[in-house]
Simulated scan of single mutants.
Amino acid sequence: MVRPPTAAQRRVLDAADPVTGRLRGTEAQLAALVKRGLAFRHPRPPHDHFLTPAGHRIREAPPERPPTGEPRPDGAAGGGRGDGDDGVFAARPGGAEEPAASGPARLREVHSAWQGLLELRRMTNPDGAVDRPCGWERAHLVRAAALALEAAGHRPEGADADGYRVRATPQPEAVAVYAPDPGTLAACAATLEGAGWQPGECTEPRTGVRYLLASPRRV
């Protein structure tokens, strides 16, 4: 059974960039996370440390309450970025339950998250390419597609009656994108294609509803 991270290690994990997974900490802390398989040291300068998939899973899991009752630092998960209860940036896949908050602050957050994702592509794709999705996006399909759409100026359902809605599918490495307006659906397809995805229009057999089936492009 894998031991849970220590309180200090958990704070480093929680403070990782919510999109790129870039870590900040002492050399000893980072080395300990690498040893446990929760982080890796990038081979190219400046040799920053990033979360591994296992590190991302632990970061996104609710922390166990420490036996001493030590409180979790406010805003540790994202340094105050985003609109979640703990300050973590959250991509919006669309839905009636989503907040409709927008404005300059949200635009800055989305722009920053998208630039961080492009940097993650550059740092983790073997050839440094930024025109196609990286491993993090393949592990977080709905969040990645929603971020690409919102970063391009599309509005999610809930904030816009004609907005997009991204949902997981049973197919591996594929998401479904819905929009009530055909023009919005076509615009979403163009955005995803430009962001390195392969979208194709499909029709639900029972309802006749049109939607996009989109997968991250590999080459």
Score class of each variant (00 low, 15 high):
157 E>C: 12
127 D>H: 13
144 A>G: 07
58 I>M: 10
85 D>W: 09
72 R>H: 06
176 A>Q: 10
74 D>A: 09
30 L>R: 06
180 P>R: 13
79 G>Y: 04
151 A>T: 02
151 A>K: 06
18 P>K: 05
158 G>Q: 07
42 H>T: 05
178 Y>N: 11
189 A>I: 12
123 M>I: 11
57 R>F: 02
11 R>T: 03
11 R>E: 12
116 G>W: 06
191 T>W: 02
140 H>N: 14
62 P>S: 09
15 A>I: 05
179 A>R: 02
169 T>M: 08
200 G>C: 07
110 V>T: 12
123 M>F: 14
1 M>I: 10
96 A>F: 13
75 G>E: 06
2 V>I: 13
45 P>G: 11
202 C>G: 11
145 A>S: 05
104 P>L: 01
43 P>W: 07
37 G>M: 01
182 P>C: 09
84 G>S: 15
109 E>M: 03
216 P>V: 10
113 A>H: 00
158 G>F: 05
187 A>L: 07
173 E>F: 10
98 E>Y: 05
10 R>L: 06
96 A>D: 15
9 Q>K: 03
217 R>H: 04
128 G>I: 05
172 P>F: 15
24 R>H: 13
181 D>T: 07
207 T>Y: 08
79 G>H: 13
8 A>L: 11
32 A>N: 10
103 G>E: 02
164 Y>P: 10
94 G>T: 04
137 E>P: 03
114 W>Y: 12
214 A>W: 06
29 Q>C: 12
35 K>F: 04
24 R>Q: 12
57 R>L: 09
196 G>K: 05
36 R>Q: 08
139 A>W: 09
38 L>T: 02
12 V>R: 00
85 D>R: 08
187 A>K: 02
164 Y>T: 08
114 W>F: 13
81 R>E: 02
157 E>D: 10
90 A>D: 02
133 P>R: 12
55 G>M: 07
73 P>F: 05
193 E>R: 14
61 A>D: 08
69 G>V: 02
194 G>M: 14
24 R>F: 11
157 E>T: 04
119 E>G: 14
191 T>S: 10
173 E>W: 05
99 P>I: 01
90 A>L: 09
64 E>R: 00
94 G>I: 06
152 A>F: 11
39 A>I: 02
91 A>Y: 04
104 P>M: 01
120 L>I: 07
83 D>E: 13
206 R>Y: 03
47 H>I: 14
105 A>S: 09
80 G>V: 10
213 L>I: 09
115 Q>W: 11
214 A>E: 02
11 R>N: 12
76 A>L: 07
100 A>R: 13
120 L>V: 08
130 V>E: 07
106 R>P: 03
16 A>F: 01
171 Q>Y: 15
168 A>I: 09
16 A>C: 04
58 I>Q: 01
